[in-house]
Design a protein around this nucleic acid. Structure first.
Length: 274
DNA sequence: CGCGCTCCCTGGCCGC
DNA sequence: TGCGGCCAGGGAGCGC
């Protein structure tokens, strides 16, 4: 599910079930997801109260009452389900179950296991290897035309790759990069350096808008092969280019094209995007 | 040193 | 119905 809008949606959905709640029983059903879980992971969470839930890039961060932060990344296929009442019989891909003192259970499910969880001391959060090099939040004040222009100026990679790079801006993924480039009429193949300046100035509001609109729709739900007990997103119905290879461009009717950049599909209109 | 490629993993889908 | 090949929202790590 997860680019910034989806992670933000998950975070908001979990808030009411976790913030102010104590984790009474934590079940860890695997040693590792993408990486090994920390030593005594479940035991270290048990008994803790979640004080705040927030998001940085595509990471979900839960501040605990002992000065530690529980970090989660959903990878490609990670989901969080809320299960009311007693803990469910875990399915094959339900890796972590967290029961709270309200009686509900949060289930982390991830069939591809590219997700991760870790524990880090709050005072060292910014030094965590996965957080320390992240660029600014795209919805924050630090992300503006001047910043983006400078960040792109010396880069010889295509703009598509530069925007997927979490050091440039944190939280964009394949869908929203494709959509933001379409909205600004910028070709995904254009060198990042040539986007510095006026194109970068246009890109910033386009990125903010597409993310804000997606969050308002609850994110995008793709390949919903399991029955979701949680809420679904609806932004996928508003994609202009993502996943629309061969279908007509909404602006000019030309078929949408797909190309591979840095190993990932890019969808774009070769007439509207230059 | 900055870049693209490969790989981690499971499963859906398409064509034969 | 089965099988191989391709594809998937991320991103670390490694060569070039």
């Amino acid at each position: 599910m997860p680019e910034l809008p989806e992670v933000e949606t998950v975070c908001r959905g979990l808030e009411g079930h976790l913030v102010g709640r104590r984790l009474t029983k934590v079940t860890q059903r695997r040693d590792k997801l993408r990486w090994p879980l920390p030593e005594n992971f479940a035991a270290r969470l048990e008994g803790r109260t979640v004080q705040r839930l927030h998001r940085r890039a595509k990471f979900i961060l839960a501040d605990l009452d002992d000065g530690w932060v529980w970090m989660t990344h959903l990878g490609m296929s990670g989901r969080m389900f809320i299960h009311e009442g007693s803990a469910p019989d875990p399915g094959k891909h339900d890796h972590v179950l967290l029961q709270t003192n309200s009686g509900g259970t949060v289930v982390f499910q991830d069939h591809r296991r590219f997700g991760m969880m870790d524990l880090v001391q709050a005072k060292h959060l910014g030094k965590h290897r996965l957080l320390r090099d992240l660029g600014p939040e795209p919805l924050g004040n630090e992300f503006n035309g001047i910043y983006l222009s400078n960040a792109l100026r010396d880069r010889r990679t295509p703009i598509k790759s530069a925007l997927l790079d979490q050091k440039t801006v944190a939280g964009l993924g394949n869908i929203y990069v494709c959509e933001a480039l379409f909205r600004t009429g910028i070709s995904p193949r254009r060198f990042a350096a040539s986007v510095a300046g006026r194109r970068a100035e246009r890109l910033v509001p386009a990125i903010r808008d597409v993310l804000t609109q997606a969050i308002a729709k609850g994110g995008s739900t793709l390949r919903d092969y399991v029955q979701a007990s949680g809420e679904l997103g609806y932004f996928q119905h508003e994609f202009a280019v993502y996943g629309r290879e061969g279908e007509p461009c909404i602006e000019c009717d030309q078929p949408i094209k797909r190309l591979i950049q840095a190993g990932r599909s890019t969808f774009y209109c070769s007439r509207c995007q230059r």
